[in-house]
């Protein structure tokens, strides 16, 4: 049976009816049209569906939408502002850290969460901070350069 939940996504409050077996990834993508969050496996192995849930990055394919009642969710769509791309997004464009782009939204969310918590990560900490986000295109080199360029 559907249940109404209230969840804050990218600073907007959504009151929405969800099925118990619906994942957060599917809610975002198919009900709310927030298709920036990608699905590359649906079993928590690739990180393409990474969102920030109550301050921590998670695989949204392994979170039930119904569990996010009262939660705060940040997705890739919430990063850019009217002024333009978020600096991390700029860095990904600038450094050539994006190829096919399918891992990029999740990768950028992990990068943001990492830098939110640790403004000056070492290279090893950057590698750890994206270790659940698989990228088949770039070899991670330019991704790490992009994140490194955003240290303070």
């Amino acid at each position: 049976m559907k249940k109404i939940i209230s969840v804050t996504i990218n600073n907007e409050i959504y009151e929405i009816a969800v099925e118990p077996n619906q994942t957060l990834a599917d809610l975002l993508r198919y009900d709310l049209g927030l298709t920036g969050t990608k699905k590359g496996c649906d079993t928590g192995d690739c990180g393409a569906c990474t969102v920030i849930l109550d301050g921590d990055v998670v695989n949204s394919c392994l979170v039930l939408a119904i569990q996010t009642d009262g939660s705060v969710v940040d997705t890739i769509e919430g990063l850019a502002t009217e002024e333009g791309l978020h600096p991390i997004q700029e860095a990904f464009v600038e450094k050539g850290a994006i190829q096919c782009g399918y891992c990029s939204p999740g990768m950028i969310m992990s990068a943001k969460n990492l830098l939110d918590k640790n403004t000056n990560p070492t290279e090893q900490e950057i590698r750890e901070g994206i270790s659940g986000n698989l990228c088949r295109c770039t070899g991670y080199q330019k991704i790490i350069e992009a994140i490194d360029s955003q240290k303070s």
Partner: peptide, 23 residues
């Protein structure tokens, strides 16, 4: 040169459309 790619601003923001994004 090292020109920025045409597609990456959309890919960085989640705007780029892949097939499962289409209804």
């Amino acid at each position: 040169t090292r020109a920025h790619r045409l597609d990456t601003p959309d890919k960085a923001t989640g705007k780029a459309v892949y097939v499962d994004d289409i209804d």
